[in-house]
Write a protein that binds this DNA or RNA. Structure first.
Lengths: 294, 294
DNA sequence: TAAAAATACTCCATAGGTATTTTAT
DNA sequence: ATAAAATACCTATGGAGTATTTTTA
C-alpha cells in the first residue's frame, strides 16, 4: 500500500464517481479503477458497493476507512510541518550558557528580541563561567554560550560580539571623584570590593594584574556574589570597586564611575559554540546575535 | 511522498547505516540513498547528518520525524485492521427487530451464542410486530428481523427457521385436563385469556379463525400484554388460553398444556432482511441463524 | 587500504494512458 | 442512446539494479 492509494481512495469516496475523481486527480479513469482495486485486494475488503456500474457507494468498512484515512493524512501533514519547523530552527529547545557579566545588559537584550522572532523556541538558561561553558558545550549540555576569551579549548568556535573596558566605582562622597581619570595606584589605600574569584576567574585575575604591574597588592575588604551588591556596598561608602564598564548601566545614587588612566585590559564577550554540532536552531541564533555586534 | 519513503526512512534511522538498511529492505544501497534524498528534498529538511560518509546520524528534525513516522505507520496498521474487521462483519452494530413471540425461546438462544462468536458486534434490539419490522427494514432502522410470515412486502427476503403449532393452556384443576386432546368448541364456554391484537395481529387473527370456522365467537374475558402474565392468569384459574407451543417452556405449576385436536395453523418464525443492503455483519448473522433451523 | 555513501548509467516493473467492452439508465 | 465502470493492451516514468567514484577512518 502507498499513500497514492489513500489519496485516490479519498477522491473516489468524496466524488462517489470514478470518472470525476480521476479528473480531479489529473489521471485517466481506468488507472484509478485499478488502484482502487489494488487497495481493496490488499485490504481484502470491499470499500465501495458496485452493484451497478452507475452508482458508486461506500460500504460500512469504506466509511470507516475514509475517516481513518482523513486522520492519517492530516497527521502526516502536521508531522511534516513539525519536522520542517524543527529543521528550520523555528521550534525546539536552545540551551544557553552565560556568565554573570552578560546578565546585566547584553543577554536580556538579545533574548527579548530572539523570543519575539522565534516564539516557539524554548530557551533554557544556565549561568556558567567561561571554562564551565566550554566543558558544557563538549558535553552537549548547552548549545551556545556567552563567555569571555581567551578560550582554553581551541576546537570551539567563537565570535566576539561586544568588548568593554574596566572602570572604577566610587562612593559619590569620595575625594577621588574630583578627578576625571583614576590612576590605579591611588586605589591601593582604598578598601576594594570584589567578587569571589570562582565566579569569573579571568576577569578577577585581570583586575588583580592591574595592581601586580606595580608589584603591590590591593586591599580587598569585601566580597559579594552579585554585581548589584558590590555597587550597593560602594554606594554605602564601604569601599571602591573595579568593574566592567557596561555595569555603569546599574545607575545607583551615591555611586560615581570614573575611567582608569592606565592601559587597561579589554573585556570581550563572545558567543561560543561547537561547529560540528551546528543545528538549525543554533545557526539561527548565531546569525541573530550578529545584529548586536557594535 | 509515498509510504515507501517512510518505511525506508525508518530502516535507515534504525540501522544508521544505508547498506545494512538496504539489505534489511531487500533492495540495493543506491536506490535507498536516492529515496532518502527524495524525501529530504520534499521535506526541505535534512533528516540525517552526513558530514562523513561513514557515520550516519539523525538530525533533531530526523528524530522527531522518526517518532511521527512510527505513530503514522502504527495508525495505518490499526486503521487497516479496523476496516478489515468491519469488512468481515466482526465488528460494528447490528440492529435486530423481533416479535414478542421469539423473546421467550428462540431469540435468547441465538443471541447468546452469536455474542460469544462475535463479541465485538454491538447488538441493538427492537421489539416490533411483523409489519413494523418490514417497514423498519425499508427505512434501514433495523438490519434483520425475526418475524412471522406471511409478509406483506414481497421485495424482502426471508428464511423460516422455526415453526410451531398452537396449544391450549389449562388450569391444572380444570376438568378438560382429563383429555389428551382438546376440541376447540369445548373452549367456547370457557373464559379465554388473550393478548391485545396490536401485539401480534397475525397470531391473534389465526387464533380467532379457529373459532370462526365454527361460526362462533370466543368469550374473551381478559387481555394481558405479557405471555407470562397470560400463563399466570391461567394458573390462577381465571380462564384458558391458546398459545404457540414453544411457550410451553414457560413451566409454571398449576398450568397444563394440551394439544388441539383439530387442524391448527402453523406459526412460522423467519429471519427477514433486505437482500440489497446485505452487509458482511448481516451476512454473518444470517449464516449463523442457519444453525438454529430444526 | 577498506568500507561506506554518493554518482552515473541501465533496465524493467508498473503507474498511467488509449481503445474497447460491458452494463445499466 | 448515453453514461459510467471494467477490461485489455500499450507506453513511459521512475524505482531498483550494476558499476564506479568519492571520501574517510
Amino acid at each position: 500500500m502507498e499513500l497514492r492509494h489513500l489519496r485516490y481512495f479519498i477522491a473516489v469516496a468524496e466524488e462517489l464517481h470514478f470518472s470525476k475523481a480521476a479528473k480531479r486527480l489529473h489521471i485517466a479513469q481506468p488507472p484509478l479503477s485499478q488502484q482502487i482495486q489494488q487497495l481493496e485486494a490488499e485490504l481484502e475488503v470491499k470499500l465501495f458497493h458496485r452493484k451497478t456500474k452507475q452508482q458508486v457507494q461506500l460500504t460500512e468498512a469504506g466509511k470507516v476507512f475514509l475517516q481513518e484515512t482523513y486522520r492519517l493524512l492530516a497527521q502526516l501533514k502536521t508531522a511534516v510541518a513539525l519536522t520542517q519547523r524543527i529543521g528550520r530552527g523555528q521550534t525546539g529547545q536552545l540551551r544557553i550558557g552565560f556568565t554573570s557579566l552578560v546578565i546585566y545588559d547584553l543577554l536580556p537584550l538579545i533574548l527579548r528580541e530572539f523570543r519575539e522572532q522565534y516564539s516557539e523556541v524554548e530557551l533554557v538558561l544556565l549561568e556558567l563561567t567561561t571554562s564551565q561553558q566550554e566543558q558544557a558545550l563538549k558535553d552537549f549540555r548547552i548549545h551556545v554560550g556567552f563567555a569571555h576569551p581567551p578560550l582554553e579549548d581551541d576546537t570551539l568556535s567563537y565570535k566576539c560580539i561586544h568588548s568593554e573596558t574596566l572602570v572604577v566605582a566610587l562612593p559619590a562622597t569620595h575625594s577621588l571623584t574630583q578627578k576625571e581619570h583614576i590612576r590605579v595606584h591611588l586605589l591601593l589605600s582604598e578598601p576594594l570590593i570584589m567578587f569571589p574569584r570562582y565566579l569569573a576567574p579571568g576577569l578577577y585575575d585581570r583586575i588583580m594584574a592591574l595592581f601586580q604591574q606595580k608589584k603591590v597588592k590591593p586591599n580587598i575588604t569585601q566580597e559579594a556574589v552579585q554585581m548589584q551588591t558590590i555597587i550597593g556596598l560602594v554606594s554605602a561608602g564601604m569601599g571602591v570597586a573595579i568593574i566592567p564598564s557596561t555595569l555603569q548601566n546599574l545607575q545607583r545614587s551615591g555611586v560615581v564611575y570614573r575611567p582608569i588612566l592606565e592601559e587597561v585590559p579589554v573585556i570581550e564577550t563572545a558567543v561560543i559554540w561547537q561547529q560540528e554540532s551546528l543545528t538549525p536552531i543554533v545557526e539561527n541564533f548565531l546569525q541573530f546575535t550578529q545584529k548586536f555586534v557594535l
